[in-house]
Amino acid sequence: MKETGGKKSLFTFDRIVALSSILIALFLIHNEYNMPNPNIQQTIGPSFMPIAILVALIFSALLILVTSFRIIRKPEGGEAAPAEPPAKTTAGQYKIMAMVILGLLVYAIMLVPVGFIISTTILILWQAQLFQRGKWIRNLVVSIPFSIIVYYLFVHVLEVMLPMGILPL
């Protein structure tokens, strides 16, 4: 798991990004090139800019690829080493971040059918558990009034319709 000079993993993040963006860019160029264009008087049509940007993107991805190799070849330059090597994200950390994202996704899906107040209360309870175990009472005492107040702020002060869902309000 430890990173030792990067030899072990040929597929570093930068290289994966560079390679995949080249592939995506090629696909998008192909896609854009075959688009039918409206017959409107134009010096440069709607495809010009996207294709130009994509070509430039491929070059910059190649640049990233090249630099990623160069940095590895000289591990001991005269430069000062970075103050603290970026700590490897542990599995536990990835798990908790995945849980945060999962909570948000579920929130987005629930929002319209279930309604703002209930979903928000659940979201806050869920996320709060991820950050800090326990303290259910405190979280409940905060989250329920918070959801209701925000609902009223949006709907009645800002006149932004939030979904009320299953609550008969």
């Binding site: 688009m35 039918p36 264009n37 409206p38 017959n39 409107i40």
Partner: peptide, 10 residues
Amino acid sequence: KLGMDKKQKK
């Protein structure tokens, strides 16, 4: 007539 209909080819 504007050349904007959906069946236009380039």
